[in-house]
Design a protein around this nucleic acid. Sequence first.
RNA 1: GGGUGAUUAGCUCAGUUGGUAGAGCAGCGCUUUUACACAGCGAAGGUCACAGGUUCGAAUCCUGUAUCGCCCACCA
Length: 713
Amino acid sequence: MKQVPEQLNRPFNAEEVESSLYEMWEKSGYFNPDNLPGNRKESYSVTLPPPNVTGTLHTGHAIMLAIQDTLVRYKRMSGYKTLWLPGTDHAAIATQSVVEKKIYKEEGKSRHDLGREEMLNRINEFAAESQKTILSQSKTMGASLDWSRLAFTLDEKRNLAVRTMFKKMYDDGLIYRGHRIVNWDPKGQTTISDDETVAEERKGKMYTFKYSKDFPIAISSTRPETKVGDVAVAVHPDDERYKKYVGKEYNIAFAGCPITIRVIADTAVEKDFGTGALGVTPAHSQIDWDIKERHNLPVKQVINEYAKMYGLANEELNGKKVTEAREYIVNWMHENNLIISEEDVVQNIPTAERTGGVIEPLPKLQWWIAVNKPFKHFGVETTLKNLMRKAVENKDTTIIPDHFEKTYYHWIENLHDWCISRQIWYGHRIPVYYKGDEIHCEINPPEEDGWVQDEDTLDTWFSSSMWTFSTLGWPEETKDMKTFHPTSFLDTGPDILFFWVARMILASMYVFNEAPFKYVYLHGMVRDAQGRKMSKSLNNALDPRELSTKYGTDALRMSLLVANGPGNDLKLGEDKVKAYKLFANKIWNATRFVLEKTADFEEDTVLNDEDQAVYDAWRDKQKDITSDLDNHRLHIASEKVYDYFWKVFCDEIIETRKTRILENRDKESAQALLLILLREQMIVIHPFMPFITEEVWKYIKKDEDNMLIVTHW
RNA sequence: GGGUGAUUAGCUCAGUUGGUAGAGCAGCGCUUUUACACAGCGAAGGUCACAGGUUCGAAUCCUGUAUCGCCCACCA
């Protein structure tokens, strides 16, 4: 007679066992693919989307940890050489601005008060602390990450990778320095890429007016203050109304500033919009800058980096903020009877994602990646844009759900050159050196005296674009590179499809002519029970750590997996988490009962026909679940394990067999069935609910069995 | 303006290739029967947004409409 273990007579206490189980796994070394038992030929690799070092674990992290850990555990149990590689992201602008704010609040000092070196020390200190927090919190989710390979986007090795990549692209002519219109963030005092801007709806006024009484053509603008920087008026070449003016030049005093306006014809102008004439401000509008290029017009910058007017003949205007200047100029036009009409309009104003500052388009000398420039790539002429498209078209990588492929293509079509230089201090310094007029791009600083390194740093997404291979040791030809790249799977939120996924595809295609991962799985964003975005300001964010303490990590993981199909947002209420705590309890109680009823059982019993049929049905269910997992249908697989265990195993199978055991009718077969089903279900449930299953496994495994985490699926 | 997704039980959502609609929560009735009341059994609840079409058969495929959501956009 076997004894039912004492622990099982108490209710399941998740908090009590979780940390010691995690410790047991960590000590076993099985998170590291090099230590896995058996002869594993095929590899399965996943890189963790590196969390920013700014924050603490939130539900977004929890969902990605749950999805990835489930798949990784499944593959590890299925005999793959399985690597899940952790790391963190320095998140340049985000981190610097958090630390800047903190220092300003606590000490009243700006970054310029501290100086570059001291500021960087402070940010590094903060980042190191923050990294520790987020990593230890990831462990509480049960994440079976290989901590021995931990990486950071800004550490030594990744730094080398970044410089190597920059140099390679520079030498291929794909990275260039260009004077163009940039998205300038006056608040963050840096340029940002197109993707880092967020359109914000604002009410504005569109003014239709003339520069002066004598000027023959009326134009429209929502930003009259920029008109002191106008150099031309563009009309459509076919527009009969204005043909006679094309080619003429007018000298005008506009708001006390002399401007020279040439009338030009350009097909970019729409005849039917507004007056059909466009005031051209090359320095402060991208479209106008393009017109300038075609017509060889001068550039007259009238707004500076602080979004203030400058360099104007009218001293009253200089130093005014753009909004004040707008008011001033509108008044001036009213006084001079130049305004023909005013119309209320709703406009989308670009703002900076991180600081909220209103973007000021300014001409600046910056570093760019040319996405449309043809170059020789593995013997074939192509462009970066083509490579990005090709990877998905050729199914080198598959996006789940597939409708995001359309979104991806659409984004590629509209992609402009990528501005990669930033005027902040925290990040990878651009590996370019200057000496007089000489420019020199090198992986390591020139030894010769007199070279000065570029002051700017790189867009944080430049380093994260290389994440799948910089983490494996590239540019060195490491064993890990050969074994684990390209990776098998990437899971992330759809909000960074462009920021990150697209750019990883770019980087990997460029270097290896291979997509960085076979599958991209885009999970939904977690929302609150009312469907609102979780945010600090609404104070509606559920804290995964609290939920996990209250209901158990297994319950939290299940609630994030079940019925959460890819690409759909997940509304998460506490009730759902609670429901899976009850499930954990059910597993616990069923285990106790089965052990009680089989205490006198001897192994090696043959199942009778009835029990064999039940077992066969389970095998089918098992195959079903396996196929769901292979096809990344975690939301279905998780529901099936739940449903089978509770509705089939507990409510039907146990209920009927317990009578048989009691009445001693084919008792041995019934006992055998219960034990086998319990054991096999623990294996199948383990990827979803690793803690309780591993704990239960201790009591039901056979002597020769290993830990559940490496038990064969 | 362009693109894209959603609309299924009171609420939150599943539904893999078209074959008599499912779960959790809430709610109703019964049961404290020796795994579990953090439970069991049972009942109730849906013209699967609307209108057409394809099909022997449609929540599922096609067309259109409506509402909501998301993404993209340099109409001055």
